[in-house]
Design a protein around this nucleic acid. Structure first.
Lengths: 232, 232
DNA sequence: GTAAACACGTGAGAC
DNA sequence: TGTCTCACGTGTTTA
């Protein structure tokens, strides 16, 4: 909203911006019987304005303090202007969020068991003679897990092309790209793979149950112990 | 800086905040020979001030636009005030940075080979009868790496207490906590472990060199291929 | 009634 | 020169 005329006069009046003669000429109150009352009101208003001014200064300081912190975090020059800085912060937060999401969702083991089998038929680059599957599962780790997995794939007559395997704190995530000959396999082999993995994971949870009798609790204890030792 | 008296008058004058009579009374220029010149200057100043006002409005808009973006990213209420919001942003950026650093530094394989052996003697909790080591190394993956590692530890008469193993895109990072009996081991066993790991990694690089004849390049090609397939 | 937060218009300084 | 950014003091609104 545009400041009104009265606001401008009020502003000049209260801030004492105008010189004494000007003030006395505009305020005829000195000769009125309400002169003292007016003076008190004037003082009150002045004090209020001073407080307001100070509070606003503090507020600006607070904001700029955090802006400077962000400047340091993004190793930005102190000459980077506020808008640009904030744009960079937005971008950085987005990047970091995406990065951690990718790692925790696609690489690190999750807390819950998962199985995923995808068909990459269109993606095969050996003249379409083979079907390519991307297999991914997440479960409790156990000593014979990998051996069982290899035997399962061998039994299904599938060849492992790539394998990313992550075992952290007793849980494991494995992402494999496997190839299957079209002589023996079709798209329906996705189901074979899925069922095979399911029984693999069932064996996992059984072995954990029998081995410790605590399951998740025991694992958490183990993880904490490991974290402790590593952190020292 | 405090606005001066003249500034206030100038402000009221230019913005046309004061009524006509007031304006004519403060400016004696209407009767001077420079009236037209003054009028031109007046228009110029007015236009300049209008531009300035508009530019400043745009600037505020830009800043607030990004602030609102940050509000969304942190799922903050629109009533969260600027200073608090920025404080939260600072905290969030710090958290995310720390989180990704932890994962990439302590869990995911690095691009360069690394060996680290630490002694945790003080940390042993079995009456000090055993020495605890934290072993961590990072290198190219190869089929027999884990088997070689286990044989090495067996040869050194060490028992694996915990193991975090991550293999991604052809590189592997392994973090193990191993225990060694004090009958056969002392703090100097750190060196045994280090040397053993060194020869393990040398075998790794040899096998990669022989196997592919490209080394790092070949690995990057593999990794890119895997990324591609997974991303589809 | 007062305390806090915001948008606004302005002057000053950088470039 | 003009253009851009900032800090400031103010009026207004909300709790």
């Amino acid at each position: 909203m545009q400041p009104e005329i009265s606001d401008q006069i009020f502003y000049s009046f209260l801030t004492g911006g105008l010189c004494a003669s000007s003030t006395s000429s505009t305020t005829t109150s000195l000769f009125s019987p309400f002169a003292i009352e007016d003076k008190v009101d004037e003082d009150k208003a002045l004090a209020s304005l001073r407080n307001h001014k100070e509070a606003e200064r503090k507020r600006r300081e607070r904001i700029n303090f955090h802006l400077n912190k962000l400047r340091n975090l993004l190793s930005c020059n102190s000459k980077t202007d506020k808008a640009t800085l904030l744009a960079k912060v937005v971008q950085r937060v987005k990047e970091l969020k995406q990065q951690t999401l990718e790692i925790t969702d696609e690489t690190l083991p999750s807390e819950t068991d998962e199985i995923s089998v995808l068909n990459f038929e269109d993606c095969s680059n050996d003249d379409g003679r083979r079907i390519i599957f991307k297999v991914s599962f997440c479960c409790e780790d156990r000593p014979d897990l990998l051996q069982d997995l290899m035997e399962t794939l061998k039994y299904l007559q599938m060849e492992t092309l790539f394998a990313d395997m992550t075992t952290v704190g007793g849980r494991t995530r494995n992402v494999l790209v496997v190839a299957a000959d079209k002589e023996h396999h079709g798209v329906q082999s996705v189901n074979f793979l899925q069922n095979a993995l399911k029984s693999l994971l069932e064996r996992s949870s059984k072995s954990v149950m029998m081995g410790h009798g605590g399951g998740g609790e025991e694992r958490l204890k183990r993880r904490r112990a490991l974290d402790h030792i590593i952190m020292v």
